[in-house]
Write a protein that binds this DNA or RNA. Structure first.
Lengths: 182, 182
DNA sequence: CGATCTAGGTCTCGTTGACAGACTCAGTCT
DNA sequence: AGACTGAGTCTGTCAACGAGACCTAGATCG
C-alpha cells in the first residue's frame, strides 16, 4: 500500500474536448516567433517594410511571410502612402480586428517587463494618452469584481463544449491506409 | 509636386532601440507553436504528460521539449505524485512566475473567442470562482482610468531605453562584389 | 514465472520554417 | 546614364516540427 504524495484528482477539464478551443487557433496565428514582434512594431507606429525590418532585426523573408499572413488573417491591411518625390508604396496598418490584440500585447509586455527586463528597466512604457500614467492589464468579472490572484479564476465548459471522446490522436493501430500519399 | 496619399510622419518609436524590449524575449519563450497550449492545459488542471498529450494532441517529442523548456524557464515545476498502486511519477505545476501568465492566456482566449470561435460559441469559459460570472481582461492606467479604445494607449521610452543606432542588421555595403556561384 | 499494461519518455526520418546573402525591379534623383 | 531606395524574390543551410516506432521501470494478471 503506497501512500500518494499529493492528492490525486482527475481534472474535470479532461472530460471536455479542447479541439475547438480558441487558444490553439489563436496560437496558430500568434505562435510564430516573430508575429507578435511585427505587431509590436505596428502598434508603435512603425509601419513600413524596411522600417520594421531595420528596427526589429527580423529577416527579410520572414517579415514578408509574417506580413502576408497577418494581412491574410485580417489583422493588418495595406495602405498606400507616398513620401514626396518617391513613388507610391504600401504600409501596413492594423485593422479593427488587429487593434483588439492590444490587450494581448500589453499583457505580454507586462509579464516580460516584470520577469525578463534588463536591470535598468524596460525599454518601453505604455501610458494613458490623456493622463500619462502607465497602463496595466487587469482581470475583472462581469459583476465588476477585480480578480487579483490567479486561483480566483476557474473554467467551465462553454456553449461550444463537446465531450472529450478519447484520444483523437492515433489509436495506435488505426488503418494504415490513408497516410501513404507518396 | 506629388501630393502624398496619407500624412507621412516618421514614427517616434524609430528613434529608440528595441533590442531590449521584453516583447521579443517573452516571445522567444511563448512564441513557439505549442507553448501556450501546454500552459492552457496546466491552467485547466491537466498536469500529466499523457493527459496533456491526449487532451491537446501535441506530438510527444514536442511536448517533451516544451515541458523541459518551460521547467527550465521557471514557469513550470515538476512535482511527484502517485496514484495508488503505481509508482511515483512527476506532474507539472505552475510556478508563481508561471501563474502570472494568466492575463496573457485570458487575453488570448478573449480575442480568440471573439474572432475565431465556432458559430456555436467557445468551448471553454473562464469565470470568477466566487460569483460564476465570466472573466475578461481590461486595460487601466495607474490613475484608475479604464482604457476602452486602443488609441488611448501610447508609448514612451522607459528607463532602459537606448537610442536606436542604425541598422544592427548587416552593415554590408551595397557593392556588387562577387558573382553568385551556382 | 512470463506476459502485458502504462506513463513517460527516446530514436529516426521526412517536411516545414528560420535565416543570411545575393539578386531583381520600378521609379527617382543627379 | 548611373546610383539609390523600398520592397521584395531566389537559393541554400540548418534547426524545429510532427508521425510513428521503439524503449523502460514498475504494477498487475494468468
Amino acid at each position: 500500500m503506497t501512500a500518494h504524495l499529493v492528492p490525486v484528482e482527475s481534472p474535470a477539464a479532461l472530460a471536455w474536448s479542447v479541439d475547438n478551443c480558441t487558444v490553439g487557433r489563436a496560437m496558430a496565428i500568434l505562435g510564430e516567433r516573430w508575429t507578435v514582434v511585427v505587431l509590436r512594431e505596428v502598434f508603435l507606429g512603425v509601419r513600413r517594410f524596411d522600417d520594421i525590418r531595420r528596427h526589429s532585426g527580423i529577416p527579410r523573408q520572414v517579415l514578408t511571410n509574417r506580413l502576408a499572413m497577418l494581412v491574410e488573417q485580417g489583422l493588418l491591411q495595406k495602405v498606400p502612402y507616398q513620401v514626396t518625390g518617391a513613388r507610391s508604396r504600401l504600409e501596413y496598418r492594423l485593422t479593427p480586428r488587429g487593434l483588439e490584440l492590444q490587450p494581448i500585447l500589453l499583457a505580454i509586455v507586462q509579464w516580460g517587463d516584470r520577469h525578463l527586463a534588463d536591470p535598468d528597466g524596460p525599454a518601453l512604457e505604455f501610458v494613458h494618452r490623456d493622463c500619462g500614467e502607465p497602463v496595466h492589464v487587469e482581470l475583472r468579472c462581469s459583476a465588476g469584481h477585480a480578480l487579483d490572484n490567479p486561483s480566483s479564476v476557474t473554467s467551465t465548459p462553454g456553449p461550444g463544449a463537446r465531450p472529450f471522446s478519447g484520444p483523437q490522436i492515433a489509436p495506435q493501430a488505426r488503418e494504415r491506409a490513408s497516410r501513404r500519399t507518396k
